[in-house]
Structures are given as C-alpha cells and as structure tokens.
Design a protein around this nucleic acid. Structure first.
Lengths: 230, 230
DNA sequence: ATAGTACTTATGTACTACAAATAAAATTAA
DNA sequence: TTAATTTTATTTGTAGTACATAAGTACTAT
C-alpha cells in the first residue's frame, strides 16, 4: 500500500489547540441556539469563562469567525452575528502558488463546467444593452494586434457573459478563478484554436435558441476539454 | 437615492483592527516573497516585532491563516506554509441560517449551472460500473413509496453524477451545496415534475451522445429554471 | 557508536493591566 | 419638564509578562 493510500485511510490524529476547540464549540453553540444574523453574543469574558479558556485563546477563535464575516464587534456594544460573505473566505485561500496541482486541475475543470452551463441564465436575463456590449468587445478585439490585447479581450468577453447572468456570486466566483485559469493555461502549450468564435456566440445569443447556444459554447470550449486527462 | 443604493456606493470606512492588518500584511509577505508550501515562516517573536504588534495580536492573525489551512505550526519547529483545503473555508461559512436570501438564490442558480454543464466530464470519465450504479439507484427509487425515500434517491442520483466526473472539488462542492438546495426548495411550493426522468438520463449516458445528454439534463432541470425570476 | 540526559528554542496558554469607544445614566441648563 | 451635556460603566482592542509543553540539539556516559 502506497503512502498516499495510507494517508487517505489514516487521518493524522487531530491535536486541536484550544483555539480550534473554541471555534468548533462556538459554531455548535450558534447552531444549537438557532441564532441568526443580528443576534448578539455573550461578552468575551462570559464566553471565555464558560469555555474555560483564557480570553486570549477565546479571541484567537473569535478572530477566525470575524475574518469569515460571521461576527462583528463594537466596543461596549458587544458582538453580533452577521451574514458572512461566502466568497470572501474562498478568496483568501485561492492562491495558485500554494495550491496543489490536482486542486488547480479541478478548479480549471470547474470553470469549464460553469461556462458550459451558463446558457439558460443568459437567455433568461440578457438585454439588448448586454448584446451591444459584447459586440463592442469583439470589435475591439479585431482591432488589437498583440497577444496581451487578445488575452484581455478574452477575459472581458467571458467576464461579460458571467455578468449577464445577473448572478453576483457567479460573477465574483469567475473573477476569483481567473488567476487559476491563467496559471493552468500557462502550463498548457497546446494550441487552443476554436471552431466557434466569440462573434459566433454573440450572434446565437442575439438571434439563436438556447439549445444552439449550449452546443456552440461547448464547441467553443472544446480545445480545453480535449486537453483534459481521463 | 435609497439607503441601499447609498450603502452600495459608500462602503463603511474600514476600521481595521491590528489582527486584520496582521492578516493582510502576512498575506502580502507570502506573496511578495513567493513562498510556497513547505517553506518556513519566521518565529512569532520576530514577526510580532517586525510588525510592531504584541504577540497576542499576531497570534490572532495567525489563527486565521491556521484555520484556512495556510499554515501549520509545531512546537520548537516553528510554522510552515501548507496547501490549504480550498473548500474547507467555504464550508465554514455555508450556513443557510445565516446567509441572506439573495446569496441563497445565487447559490441555487450556481448549482443549476453546474449540473447543466456536467455533460462533457461525464462522458469523458464514465465507466460501465458507474452506469450500473446509477441504474441501481433508479431501481431502488421505483421500489420506494414515501417522500423521504424519493428525496434520498434524488440526492443519491445527482451525487453519483458529480462523483463520475472524477473531480473531487466538484463533488465536495455539491455536497456542501446540498443544504442550500434543500433550504431553497423548501420555500418553493410549485411542482417540480420533469419531462425527463433519471432513467432517461442514464439511458442517454449509456447509449446516447454528449449533445443529447446536455439537452436532456437541461430539460430535466427545466422546472427549476422556470421558477427563477428574471 | 549508542543510549540517555540536559539544554535550548518555539509554540501554546494564562493572567493582568490599560486604552479606546460608546451606550447608558446622571447631571445641568433652558 | 425637557433638552443638552457630562459622567460613568461596560465591552472590545492591545500590550506585556510568565510559564507550560513539545521537540530538536548537543553533550555525556557506557
């Protein structure tokens, strides 16, 4: 049995620090009490006493929840639960430099899946102004001549597509995934010449059917799909 | 201008705590130095001195990075950079109870987009064993008679689809999104009867083409799409 | 050379003290 | 009496010290 298999079967015995436990217990507490955004938490003193840890350690735990946007604190007023920014935490971790290659590969695929599945939202929410903007991006693309220009145009085009979905989470997700995309593409030196151009896609989005668009988008992305390993 | 618009234009002046700044600066430090997984960090004493904060505050910042899985520390050995578990942090925040409704809606749509875009990965990686397993899930479904059974089968079927993609990130993402999906569906009381059944999907996955599957999956999800607002 | 021991170093935890902000209470002015 | 002002009390934010705990490192004895 390989070391990798072994590591998969035998997780290292978790030697949780007090701060880890604080985080876990606080989370359980929120859940059990059914607390929701706006509710106030006990004071640090009360919490640290109840948990049997120093205020230091308690604050290390609280600091984590604060970072995630789960709580906010004001002097004298105390701490209140808040609606977390779900992508904020994601963002903090998305450093291609630090990620292992398999995760990078997975995220690259994830983005392909997303773009392949955008069609219905696009047709549901597109406006004439959106189409015009896409056409403008393409026009600009044709006028540019160097690679940097072309890459920026590529980003602008696909970014605009996400924007049309009207789904802010999706849009931000795409922005966050951009460096990952870049990182993977840089290590891909095969050609990525597609049969379906941006102009083709816009034409279909403007005059065609959802079904046409779905198939065209997949065709547009095909060079990337063909580079995937089985 | 409404208060909401105003709040969108004017973000509250960030009154960063020292711990916030520590987190930011450490992140910049890692980036600037181009440090990668396995590299060691300076000691807490050196860091706190360099940043001009107490060791307490420094540790509040470090605690965040530790939670994200960006660093690990051992006594005497010091701190080392690690490959973060990118979904771990996401998971910590995905509490439907705390999320605002627009984010919930966005995540629901995100999942629809994902499932609509799975086709290519499925056809790239499916095996005979996978098909058999899907068929088994369907068979079980037919034998069950109550709602709970049907819901579990629904989960099992779609979960298996993600599994077939061989993309661990995607799969975990789906698992994490499940409670969100549930939460949204619970507040939807319109019928969700589809023209394309699980059995139909499996048949196409087994004998049909990618293109057929793409269209069939969208048709399968259509009831959900139709409930979306413009 | 090896086993064992003492030493050193870095993280983990606790405690105390005070600064800063601010809600609430008390006081003063109209 | 009411409004404005000042004072007080409370809670988070920060600093500093001390010690516990784990784990490399060096040294010693066999």
């Amino acid at each position: 049995m390989s070391t990798k298999d072994l590591m998969n079967d035998l997780k290292p015995i978790a030697v949780n620090t007090r701060a880890d436990l604080v985080e876990i217990q606080l989370r359980e507490y929120l859940d059990k009490k059914g607390l929701k955004a706006g509710d106030v938490l006990p004071t640090e003193m009360d919490l640290s006493e109840a948990l049997g840890v120093s205020r230091n350690v308690l604050r290390e735990g609280l600091s984590r929840l604060r970072m995630l946007g789960l709580i906010e604190s004001k002097k004298k007023r105390g701490m209140v639960l808040t609606s977390p920014d779900i992508l904020g935490s994601f963002e903090r971790v998305l450093n291609p430099q630090l990620m292992d290659t398999s995760t990078l590969k997975n995220l690259f695929e994830l983005r392909l899946v997303l773009e392949s599945g955008l069609a219905d939202l696009l047709f549901l929410r597109k406006t004439d102004a959106d189409i015009k903007e896409l056409e403008a991006i393409i026009k600009k693309d044709k006028s540019g001549d160097n690679d940097v220009f072309r890459v920026n145009s590529e980003i602008a085009f696909h970014g605009k597509l996400y924007e049309i979905t009207g789904n802010e989470t999706l849009k931000r997700f795409q922005i966050m995934l951009m460096p990952v995309f870049d990182y993977v593409l840089k290590n891909e030196n095969r050609s990525i010449k597609s049969n379906v151009s941006h102009a083709d896609l816009v034409k279909i989005l403007k005059e065609g059917t959802k079904e046409d668009f779905v198939l065209a988008m997949r065709e547009h992305l095909r060079p990337h799909y063909e580079n995937l390993s089985k």
